[in-house]
Amino acid sequence: MRATLLGVIFLLGRKLLVAVVQLYVVATLIFSIMYIMPGDPVLLLLGADSNPTPEAIAAMRHQLGLDQPVLAQYFDWLWNALHLDFGSSLTNGYPVAGYVAENLPRTLELALTAIVIAILVGVPLGIAAALKRGSARDTILTSLATVGISVPVYIAGTLMVLFFSIKLGWLPASGYTDVSRSLSLHLSKLVLPAATLGIGLAASIARMTRSSMLEILGRDFVRALRAKGMPEGQIIWQHVLRNAAIPIITIIGLQLGNLIGGTVLVEAVFNWPGLSTLLVTAVSARNYPLVQGAMLAIAAAFILINLVVELLYNILDPRIRRKRS
């Protein structure tokens, strides 16, 4: 194995190239889908209750460049995107990059906090259940996890708001405050949405941890280690957990990736101004450049997370590393 600097750079370069191609495919897919989708941004722009004249509609379409042939619009967009210009919102001209720059960090903050909560709760519970398989503890923990999975996140979130915000008045019910304005308010508004998301995720992490642990515990090498007289604690911590970690990390990676564009329900319940709300609003308004920009950001974040997960695989499972190099 020659892990030279050059090799690492080559590997990263290849991965980045793949990522760019992936992003290109995503962008093209979204572009084509949005343009054949029914609904017209111009009508929405011209007003909620007014009856726009055909001339006004045509003029607006021309001003926005929507009267160009689709292919021309596509190559235009692509050319600009290559220059890192992702256009601006059809409705108000604010740059798409600015939208993403404001919304992505908020989503990341919420998702990462939720994942940390989920790992801190889910992994220990899963291990605890697996180690006493079939016991009352296992049954209770497994059932709890199942209940956790089966409560819709917007119900859980609403109950949290009703209890912690409205009844007890401990925490704000909704919204987002900039750190620059007030750190304590910022954090207090993060608690409920992150906990709501985190608890749901913890349940599935706990389940995956349990089943993956059980799988490894049933392997021959564990029996061999036991036969050799290795202490049970050492077997668990050094061998079983390490091997069980791969599917656990897979599911955490998957969840984190899903969260980047998938926190829409929690964002709705807590009015958290994140990326998926932006995406929903943009699709609703047929704000094409914004949909593309938001989707590219989501895909890019997703691909990045995948890269990290893959790196973790390599560290955790020497066999994969050997096979690939």
Binding site: V18, V21, Q22, V25, V26, L29, I33, M37, P38, G39, L254, G257, N258, I260, G261, G262, V264, S276, L279, V280, V283, S284, M295, I298, A299, F302, I303, N306
Partner: peptide, 22 residues
């Protein structure tokens, strides 16, 4: 696997919005 990655990067809500739109 790259196609799977691409599919995975589409949030469910977007897929649903698009499907309903069509």
């Amino acid at each position: 696997m790259r196609c799977v990655d691409i599919m995975l990067s589409f949030p469910p809500i977007l897929l649903a919005l698009l499907a309903v739109g069509f």
